[in-house]
Amino acid sequence: MQPIIGLIMFLFLMLPPVANLLESIMIFHMHMQMPLIAISGFLMAPFFMEKFPKFFAKWNERGIPGIILFTLVMTYWSIPRAMDDALTMYSVELFKFISLAFLAGVPLRASWMKLTDFWKNAVFVFFTLQYGLMGLIYLMSDSQLCNNYLQSEQITLGWGFLTVAIALLIYLIQLVIIDPSDYE
């Protein structure tokens, strides 16, 4: 069921009007479309995991290569240049869909359950820092970072990054101050 929903979602996101709408606003592009593509991959993952169990077992030991791939692909797509290129070059746009679904969404699912708590928390810390940093870059930058988007949209995106970073930070803080073993 899940892989089918994932596939439908993936194809739906690729429809030109849907893609155009989501790409028309900078923050939708980065914080709505890209995660949705990754989620579609995440949903499709069980299909591949069942089809090639050996591959995942052998090459994704303890989930570490997978999570590194996920992290780096997601980071790549937060570069302003990458977003511009996706809008101007068809090949990059295609690569965006493929990489986010199959090189970010799938490895995330294939890795997450295998990871130790240390690695899981490391991923949260990494994204908190990355989002905070990207937020500051987008907010502080005096110049237009993307040719296809206005500077005011850049500020919106900056706040988007910052608010997500703050939400993640709250999550990390509660991890530190609340000991789940008190309750579970």
């Binding site: 709505m32 919106t156 706040w159 703050i166």
Partner: peptide
């Protein structure tokens, strides 16, 4: 919930 709120309100509020 906070992330969903951010999704909804970052755009209009910053604007």
């Amino acid at each position: 919930m906070l992330i969903v709120i951010a999704m909804g309100y970052v755009i209009p509020l910053t604007d």
